[in-house]
């Protein structure tokens, strides 16, 4: 008995060391293509723009001092990202609820697959289609026939919002769907039998169960939207300006790499704070979940 267990321990120890080596390729990749580039970016952010554009080594905080000129893109990014995440949530929740609890059998899988199908078409092609739809010959013309007068939709903050909600909706629907799927339908019946109204049921049973899904949906939408570049360019006509656009301009038009690097560094730092916040909240949620299940 003791021999066997000792042998098992030894082989376990060996396996631990060998299997741990499996992390090496991934770790090397992280160092080579994530840490190193971010370090280079940080170094560049204390440099100066060379006269012909690009980077000149220096040690100055001038780039950071200049960041105040990019307040508008910052407030646009934060405001619109938050707003559109909320819209996404409001649009997605009833859909996820219906798919999870109202649809039965094999239809369920088909409908969930249908949520993803549009996203197998190239993002750019879909967005070009929206440009056609929102342009003067699309929806505004139909609205004109109905009698709304001349309405501009394309190249407005509305179009940017629509593009964002459209493109990130599945990322909100799917996690909420997954968490609601686990909900036992008998809970709902029990709640109704106990005389709870629909709103009480929603608040006391559905929402708490959906919370982890809602939280991951929010993160899955909020974070990439904050880094959005193409949607403001294509649907906002270059007028609704995000941090990503300011960044692209600094590298591609102004060729002011150090300033761009400073903006990017602050950007990454900000995102890290958001992620840390998410991790803290989700850990707490997990703990609460565990405690409530213990009860």
């Amino acid at each position: 008995m003791s021999i066997i267990s000792r042998a098992a321990t030894r082989s376990n120890g060996q396996r631990r060391s060998y299997a741990a080596l499996l992390v090496v390729p991934a770790a090397a990749w992280y160092v080579g293509f994530l840490v190193a580039p971010l370090v280079v970016l940080a170094i560049m952010s204390v440099g100066e723009r060379s006269p012909n554009g690009g980077y000149l080594p220096a040690l100055t905080l001038a780039q950071y001092a200049n960041l105040t000129t990019r307040i508008t893109p910052l407030t646009n990014t934060l405001g619109l990202a938050a707003l559109n995440t909320v819209i996404c949530l409001l649009v997605a929740f009833p859909v996820a609820y219906t798919l999870a609890l109202k649809v039965r059998g094999s239809w369920k899988l088909v409908l969930v697959a249908l949520v993803i199908v549009p996203f197998w078409t190239s993002f750019l092609i879909r967005t070009y289609a929206w440009m056609t739809l929102l342009g003067a010959n699309g929806v505004p013309r139909i609205l004109g026939w109905i009698g709304f007068g001349e309405i501009q939709l394309l190249n407005t903050p509305f179009a940017v919002s629509l593009g964002i909600v459209y493109n990130y909706l599945p990322l909100m629907i799917l996690p909420i769907y997954v968490s609601l799927e686990r909900l036992d339908r008998s809970f709902l019946e029990a709640s109704r039998d106990l005389g709870a109204g629909p709103i009480t049921t929603l608040r006391q049973i559905v929402l708490p169960l959906a919370a982890p899904g809602i939280l991951s949906g929010i993160v899955l939408v909020l974070i990439p939207v904050m880094g959005e570049y193409l949607i403001p360019v294509l649907l906002g006509g270059g007028k609704t300006y995000f941090l990503g656009n300011a960044l692209a301009d600094l590298f591609l038009q102004s060729r002011n790499w150090p300033f761009g690097a400073a903006l990017a560094t602050v950007f990454v730092a900000g995102m890290t704070v958001v992620v840390a916040g998410y991790l803290a909240i989700s850990r707490r949620l997990v703990r609460i979940g565990r405690e409530s299940s213990l009860l």
Partner: peptide, 15 residues
């Protein structure tokens, strides 16, 4: 979480 545009630019410069 790092936005694509940041990783794109940082990779370009680093590479």
């Amino acid at each position: 979480t790092v936005p694509g545009i940041v990783i794109g630019i940082a990779s370009l410069i680093f590479l």
